[in-house]
Design a protein around this nucleic acid. Sequence first.
DNA 1: AAGGCGGGGGA
DNA 2: TCCCCAGCCTT
Length: 356
Amino acid sequence: MKLPPETIASIRRRLIGWFARHQRVLPWRSEPTAYRVWLSEVMLQQTQVATALPYFERFMRAFPTVRALAGADLDDVLTLWAGLGYYSRARNLHRAATIIAHELGGRFPDTPAGLLALPGVGRYSAGAILSIAFNQPAPIVDGNVTRVLSRLFALRGDPRSPAGLRRLWSLAEQLVDPRRPGDFNQAMMELGAMVCTPATPSCGKCPVAKLCRALALGQPERFPPARRRSPVRAERWAVAVLRSDAEVLLVRREAAGRWGGLREFPGLVVPASQSAIAALRAMLRERLALRNVRLSPVGQVRHQLSHRDMTVEVFTAAIPSRIEPSSDARWVAPADLSSLAISRLTHKIARAALGA
DNA sequence: AAGGCGGGGGA
DNA sequence: TCCCCAGCCTT
């Protein structure tokens, strides 16, 4: 779809004017260095601004430069990331920092290929960094831009299909203002976040309402078409909170997969057909070489995770002597749990087993 | 091309 | 409840 020059000019002028008046004050906007923009973009992947904000401030205090981040232990990076989710982002961030610090002389890549070579940087994040930090006319397409463009041009069809993505990226490329690419791209996203919202858009406040084909059709909220939802699956877990000398035992999850690299109470997924306590005892014996642990039920913890509905059966046991069951296990005081790289679910389990 | 990956916010 | 969020990576 080739846009008429006057349409492009009008959209640019209206969006940039609106953005100048209505943009939120955000820490990565006041000082858009490549490092700050990169960090913010990674944190904002599938994450709302309000959620990422406090994490960004803490992160910048702890690791003010890419070299500081590269020199940090991954475990400390994961600790600061704990609770934000999608933990591969933190692992990729740390890996990319070491690449920038050690292979690129501390200089951020300023080309599409250079940025795309960094782990955790895809087409969107590369475009955001190029346009916002380096003032280059690179397009971006995220969830906000997808919604705004789908409505502006009343796009039919699945925006996530290959054809839909090609069309969106083509439109974004035509529209991005080469004079102010960073402001234009951020204006598109800001509009999607603040005005052109998913359920009930505020079309009365929209600077491009006059041009909006979906609004002209009378049903802007019908665009883009709703995505089909994957079925919710139930998952049953058993977890043991082992105590000794007022400390509890944590193990570390493997680096890949869900909650990769985080610490947790020893536990496992239990098939519906199996006894939770039997599965737990077998796991403690095989993995931690713990025999004859007297497990007492504490109760159940429920946790919702994406399209998963988890039920955790929590047990506790006192271990008389302070044995070290294996190398990846660690005893910690309950008061220190908040300063470790553990998931929200592990916090919930701790509350259930140890009290507030 | 499809799924997996966390957790929170809003309707 | 259900959908969505400044997406990316693996299979």
